[in-house]
Structures are given as structure tokens and as C-alpha cells.
């Protein structure tokens, strides 16, 4: 598994052999649930290879928590509890927090870029994906307080009543994030969901979970209340069906799943009449374009509430 040691990396390759220089502190990668970084309750992990690059503090192989059904359950619980206060914040305030996220992403540009390159992107690709991700965060930050204006309506009913229809968040949205793009995929699927007041339980890309964890570190430092976004690592095929069955999950947004899993999630979701949205690989790729953002992404996770009231004296 071990490929090659770089000059200034210090680690023990075998008993008795110590490389020269400073011993670095390795990062433990954890899932992000309820505003905290946690291991899987199952104690399980899986390993992701790092492509060795200059300047990396990572060991070549990192251990990533292999999330379980119970991790999913815990995440849904905190997401459920976080929903009401998050939705109750003003749209302006949610926008401020998403903008703060953009600022933090910008400040962590180099770390995000190197995380993407370690997962196989070229430097140019990584740079462009990080830039696009930051810009997309700004895009959705500025969207929070526009949603209602765009989709709400005054209904000209035939009678002495005032009627209007306003959007509301659905609640807890489970997201099976795109395998790639790992960072832009997360930003593009999570932000439109939470912009309107939903909270999210996300199963991160199995291919590149480390980038997801770095992204979570950005979330954790951007004033986002704990529990609004919860990111699990592991196998979507293991965790997602339980989320689809979970009665407190209101919607599922499936980006990376084969036909069998997608069908399974749609089927399991029917038990509580979930709003199930499925996308294929082409849709994942399209997230890289300008078309990868927009009102449509937000609208899919809105409920519409119609209110009537008499007009009289």
C-alpha cells in the first residue's frame, strides 16, 4: 500500500528506521454530526489512499470512519432537532452564515485544493473546483432572502379572502452526495437544501471523504449551528436505505447511487411518503457548470403552504 516517502516527511517505515526531520501531527478524520467531529459508533473504519504530494502532512493512508445505521440514526436526530431553530432564523441571517462559510472556504483554499489533488485531481482542476465552490457558496448566501420573493404567490381567489402561498423548508433532507466532484458536489447539493431552512444528513463521497471532512471543518467554523449539516462517511448502500426508511427524514436527494440503490431508496421512502429526488451521473457532472446552481435546486426541497383569511371589518 505504501508508495514512497517524500524527503521531508517523517514517519516510521519500519522498526528501527526513523526518517530525518520533524515528526508531524497526523490528522484523525472524523464524521461531522451535531456540530462535533465523531467516530463511527461502530468503531469501524475504511482506508483511503493519499497520493503523495509535496508539503502534505497526511500519512499516505488515512482511516475514515465507516458510518453505520446507528450513526445515521444519531445524525437524523440532531438534524431533526436543529431544523426548527434553523428554519426560524431569518432568511437574512441564514444568508449571513452561508456568506461566512464562503469566507472560511476562501481562507482554506489551499487546504481544500491539496485535499482534492490528493484524491486525484490535477492542481488546475482542484483550483478551479475550489473557486467554483466558494463562488457557489456566495451564490446561495445571497439567495436565502430571495427564495420567497421568487416562489411565493398572492392567490387571487374568487371571494372576500386574502390568500397567499409561501415556501417553507421540508425538514430533514438526506443527501447521498455525488462521488465527484467531491467538494463542489457537496456545496452544490447541501447549500440549496439548507438555504431555505432544511437541515441535512449527508453521506459523503466514498471516493474522497477527506475533502468532505475538510469541508466540515469549514462548516464548523462558519457560525453554522450544529446539526444543520451532518456529514457521514462510509457506504451509501449501507446507510442510505435506513435514512430512506427513517420516518423523521422528510426528503432524500440521491446523487450517487446505482439503479438498484436508487430504486431501493425510492421504494423505502414510500413508507413515509418521502419526497425522493434522484439524479444520475450526468447530473453530477453538470454540477460543474453554471447550470449546477439555481432556484430549481432550492425549489425541490420546499413545501408550499397556502394561507387563507377573510377580508372584512
Amino acid at each position: 500500500m505504501v508508495k514512497k516517502a517524500t524527503q521531508d516527511r517523517a514517519y516510521i517505515t519500519s522498526i528501527g528506521t526513523v526518517a530525518a526531520g520533524r515528526v508531524s501531527v497526523n490528522k484523525a478524520y472524523k464524521m461531522y454530526v451535531g456540530g462535533a467531529f465523531v467516530r463511527s459508533e461502530s468503531g469501524r473504519y475504511f482506508q483511503v489512499e493519499a497520493s503523495a504530494i509535496a508539503g502534505s502532512a497526511d500519512p499516505e493512508v488515512v482511516n475514515i470512519p465507516l458510518g453505520s445505521r446507528k450513526d445515521g440514526r444519531d445524525a437524523v436526530l440532531v438534524a431533526k432537532n436543529a431544523h426548527e431553530p434553523w428554519a426560524a432564523r431569518t432568511a437574512y441571517n441564514r444568508g449571513q452564515i452561508l456568506y461566512r462559510l464562503a469566507e472560511v472556504l476562501e481562507s482554506r483554499r489551499s487546504e481544500l485544493t491539496s485535499s482534492l489533488t490528493r484524491a486525484g485531481s490535477t492542481a488546475a482542476e482542484a483550483l478551479s473546483e475550489v473557486s467554483a465552490s466558494i463562488d457557489r457558496a456566495v451564490y446561495y448566501a445571497g439567495f436565502c432572502d430571495k427564495i420567497s420573493s421568487l416562489v411565493a404567490s398572492h392567490n387571487p381567489v374568487s371571494g372576500p379572502h386574502f390568500g397567499f402561498t409561501m415556501p417553507e423548508s421540508m425538514g430533514v433532507v438526506a443527501i447521498v452526495a455525488p462521488e465527484e466532484p467531491a467538494l463542489l458536489g457537496l456545496v452544490s447539493t447541501i447549500l440549496p437544501v439548507i438555504a431555505s431552512g432544511n437541515t441535512a444528513v449527508v453521506i459523503a463521497s466514498r471516493r474522497d471523504p477527506r475533502t468532505a471532512v475538510v469541508f466540515c471543518e469549514c462548516l464548523a467554523t462558519s457560525d453554522l449551528p450544529g446539526g444543520v449539516v451532518n456529514v457521514l462517511t462510509g457506504d451509501a448502500s449501507e446507510i442510505a436505505p435506513h435514512l430512506a426508511k427513517h420516518r423523521e427524514v422528510n426528503a432524500i436527494d440521491t446523487w450517487s447511487a446505482d439503479d438498484a440503490l436508487r430504486t431501493l431508496l425510492e421504494r423505502e421512502g414510500s413508507g413515509s411518503v418521502k419526497r425522493v429526488r434522484s439524479h444520475d451521473g450526468r447530473a453530477c457532472a453538470a454540477l460543474r457548470d453554471e447550470d449546477g446552481q439555481g432556484l430549481g435546486f432550492i425549489e425541490k426541497f420546499l413545501e408550499f403552504k397556502t394561507v387563507w383569511h377573510p377580508v372584512g371589518i
Binding site: 372576500p160 379572502h161 377573510p310 377580508v311 372584512g312 371589518i313
Partner: peptide, 12 residues
């Protein structure tokens, strides 16, 4: 004293 309100639309 709390007056009982009357809803115009519903009455009509």
C-alpha cells in the same frame, strides 16, 4: 370586558 368579535365575511 372583552367584546366578542364578529367576523364580517363569515356572518355574510
Amino acid at each position: 370586558y372583552t367584546p366578542v368579535p364578529v367576523d364580517q365575511v363569515a356572518i355574510e
